[in-house]
Design a protein around this nucleic acid. Structure first.
Lengths: 165, 165
DNA sequence: GTTAGTGCAAACCTTTTGCAGCTCT
DNA sequence: AGAGCTGCAAAAGGTTTGCACTAAC
């Protein structure tokens, strides 16, 4: 169970495993999606209504610092918040459809090659990497074209969804 | 000059070239660095003290939308603000030293290969990409080690009371 | 003259901080 | 017992919006 693994690894560093942290770790590990702080908070409150938003932020910060989770921006698709995922062994890129918001993950040798080349070329010691690719998924490409045609007809440009506003 | 090129390209889209926009375009194009909104605002005010911060944000948004500038996060090195650069013909990664903040740019075939593979593999239509790599530059690696050693020494002068003394 | 763009103030969203009290070890 | 963690309130940082006025075309 990944949550337990993280728990152990944290415990060894002298970090206390509180009820709140267990809940949050399980959610980050268990949910198949990339959660942002607010969504994580919402889910966590279902398990413990007293759990505070601040605790979510503090826990995320700690996990980030400890290298247990990675922080993503997902091309700011949904706004300026950050998304989180448990750190995998293998590097991968995130591919975000700017129309439907679907996120794909790409594991491939260009990423490892990039890493190696950067280390060699600059003598750089890499700690974290983030590769994000935005555009339209195969499904949305046709739909997008139709949208644009309609937009021209109606002179009403379609904006992508935002949380604010 | 790039500012003029951008200006023309904008004009063709029916965007008005105001004094404020000229100033901002020149700054983004001319400065060798990656500026964030606040720094851009500061520099712009030197040329026109009446220019408003909001205009900076609105102009950046427009340029982003128009594909004339790219938005970077630089691994949130300096906080949660965004940085901007004029869009180059060639894709490149940003390599950020998390100690000194120095930013290197890497142009290399892994990036083109990544792009091609993602397009082929997912049938994805790529609009923008962002690759950021954080770590320690060659210069800072040694300094970082020394910092850590000193931190340990100052933490535990004679003994090393891990849990209690 | 139109219409897009600006400045100003105020709102907004996300994240952080200070502090008193609670809890894990 | 005591450092570490939590909750609450409040603030901070970065960005956006509403509206009346101004300026580019």
């Amino acid at each position: 169970m990944p949550a337990t693994a993280s728990g152990n690894s944290l415990r060894e560093r002298g970090v206390r495993i509180t009820r709140q942290r267990q809940i949050l770790l399980e959610l980050i590990d268990g949910s198949g999606k990339h959660l942002d702080a607010e969504e994580l908070y919402r889910l966590a409150k279902e398990k413990d209504p007293k759990l505070n938003r601040v605790t979510v932020y503090r826990t995320l910060k700690m996990l980030k610092k400890g290298g247990l989770v990675d922080e993503l921006d997902l091309m700011h698709y949904g706004g300026d918040q950050h998304y989180y995922e448990t750190r995998l062994k293998q590097e991968h890129a995130h591919i975000i459809c700017l129309r439907c918001g679907k996120v794909e993950e790409f594991f491939g040798d260009p990423l490892q090659k990039l890493r190696r080349q950067v280390e060699e070329h600059f003598g750089f010691h890499i700690l974290l990497t983030r590769t994000e690719i935005g555009g339209y998924c195969s499904h949305c490409q046709a739909l997008r074209e139709r949208e644009l045609e309609q937009a021209v007809e109606q002179d009403a440009p379609a904006e992508r969804p935002r949380k604010r506003g």
